[in-house]
Design a protein around this nucleic acid. Structure first.
Lengths: 342, 342
DNA sequence: GTTAGCACTCTTGTGGTGCGAGTGCTAAGA
DNA sequence: TCTTAGCACTCGCACCACAAGAGTGCTAAC
């Protein structure tokens, strides 16, 4: 078990290292205000903390640096979230300042402001488009053999895709199809669209249309909505500002991993409610073993959820980021729900 | 004037430096096959070339490196474009392999393949959306006070925007408006949309609709199509692979500049027909003073044009890139024109 | 239990040295 | 007159030694 003083020293050490990015030594610490014991005492305590795996040395006679275990203990037990400074709140609120009516726009702005505020990289996941509900379907013919399919959802999101249409098809056939589609598919989620298309609509079309086959199958192809359309980044280049990252190779790997939307679920586990902190090797991706990721979820209405993530060095300003994310998560939930209900 | 031999030595020097990224010395050059004179002779010639400003030394006793003037002379007079190797052609053609029906998709793929092929960063500008012609307009009400405006162009491009509608507006009013818009605006380019809206449509709407004012003005706001929607990148991180870039600060500046779409016109001058090479400080942006940019235009149909740019170090493989861009430009023009006509 | 003192360790910066690759110049050779 | 061998010279770079500084662990005294 840790003594009161050990806890205190661990906390101060982590705080100091987060702030300075330099290994912290006993003399340095002792000079700080609020510390009433000598360097030697601190050395003894630090040696104990190192023995327990909370601190590390970069070399035999260096100051100490928190280990991953140290960071973990710090965020689990020593984090005293302080209220956000006014400037930060003002900045955060500026996201919603302009009357914005599109969720996408709000999320984009959030990503930007968040990265500016933190100097880290922010990743925001919008709500899964595939849970949106079809409000209207239409097909606009472009030429004799192609048309564009348009799906509008209840949230005002628009999906559109060009697809081929069989040669010499009667325009009235397309109109018929659109009518059938709208009759049968309004109110269905994008996710279920494909299934419902097969199950119900195909039957009806068989009855009412002559050349349903080809048209139907190409249209069906077109309306597969991909999963990953909803990722927004802020401050992708901020890693380059961090003194912790100097190895170009590692930077490249990290940036590569973050760009690749396939990896997003590894960075931000889906379905995670609330706030989570993943430190160094706790991350699933080895390219992120020098990073910490803080994620928080937010809600839109009762059902849909999105996520916010901040990727920074392990030596991240946890206190500040946690407060920022807490606040932003709340604000976003409120604001987006409002937009949804409007 | 340069003698035949000086030209030869300049060319070989540049070629060698492009390939090795190391200052090239007289001994090293003399060892190369195809060189029949001694290191001393080469030294003399190199000294002359340096005197004329085509070569530079990194320090008093180092090998030579091409100066910007040297590169300029090289690309202007010494570039013998060789036919592309088969592998490259195969790769390039793979862009059009899958049956793709959307220009956007083709351009995206081009950017990707191009960056893979070159190991540099590619920037592709699609044709200016604002020159596309309106094919259909529609408005889908989302709630009592918002709706989404959708514009489909002849190319199958879809613009959509959520905009507020006055409270308690009769749905039939909206329908009326859509009808009027479609009557008057089909065939107009997105660019002219705003103007035509003011000039013609407003009058008609005044006659037929009661509460045209508010609805009209919010709609008008919504259909302003921004200019810069059509930039695609490939291999943004490839700069990190180049041995020429090691200064994190410069890398950051460069990446910053490239991400910012406002700067794109400075990187790719608009309206440039054909192929252009800009070396180092010939670039408008100081962040790019260590880069070379090769741009080429391509055509879609008779009117619209787009651009391809490759951003790499001054020590770029000009020969190869020029051939690649020439070929891709031709292929893209052909393929996109085909899609447009289909 | 705390701390002053001290020997010890390790990093960092600096100056010296040798090697290698390159140059310019001179003088001899073609 | 052009070419080239030879040579002295210049840097960059890697290597080493050395001193300064910051930090540690341990011991002994308070």
């Amino acid at each position: 078990m840790l003594t009161e003083r050990q806890l205190f020293i661990l906390k101060v050490t982590v705080d100091d290292y987060i702030q300075s990015a330099q290994p912290v030594g006993s003399n340095q610490l002792a000079k700080k205000s609020g510390i009433s014991f000598s360097p030697a005492t601190i050395r003894n305590e630090m040696a104990d903390l190192e023995g327990m795996g909370f601190l590390e040395k970069t070399h035999t006679s260096s100051g100490r640096v928190p280990s991953e275990r140290g960071y973990r203990y710090y965020v689990d037990h020593l984090l005293t979230p302080r209220p956000l400074p006014k400037e930060d709140i003002v900045q955060l609120r500026s996201i919603f300042e302009e009357k914005i009516t599109e969720t996408e726009e709000v999320i984009k702005r959030s990503a930007m402001i968040l990265s500016e505020l933190t100097n880290y990289t922010s990743i925001l996941l919008g709500p899964d488009v595939r849970r949106h509900i079809v409000k209207k379907l239409s097909i606009v013919p472009l030429s004799s053999n192609s048309a564009v399919a348009i799906i509008v959802t209840d949230t005002g999101h628009v999906e559109n895709r060009i697809f081929p249409i069989p040669d010499g098809l009667n325009p009235s056939e397309i109109e018929k199809m659109v009518n059938i589609l709208n009759e049968r598919l309004i109110g269905v989620s994008l996710n279920d669209l494909h299934k419902r298309l097969e199950q119900e609509t195909l039957m009806v079309m068989k009855q009412h249309m002559e050349r349903h086959g080809e048209l139907f199958s190409t249209f069906k192809q077109a309306v597969i909505v991909p999963q990953d359309k909803n990722v927004y980044y802020g401050g992708k280049l901020n890693i380059l500002n961090q003194p912790d990252f100097h190895d170009l190779h590692k930077i490249r790997n990290l940036m590569d991993v973050m760009e690749e939307t396939d990896h997003i679920p590894m960075i931000i586990p889906v379905g995670n409610q609330g706030l989570h902190i993943r430190i160094g090797s706790e991350n699933a991706l080895s390219a992120m073993e020098d990073c910490s990721v803080i994620t928080v979820s937010y809600d839109i209405g009762e059902e849909q959820t999105g996520s916010i993530a901040i990727v920074g060095p392990k030596r991240m300003d946890y206190k500040r980021i946690v407060s920022l994310l807490d606040t932003l998560s709340g604000d976003l939930s409120k604001e987006l729900t409002r937009i949804l209900r409007n």
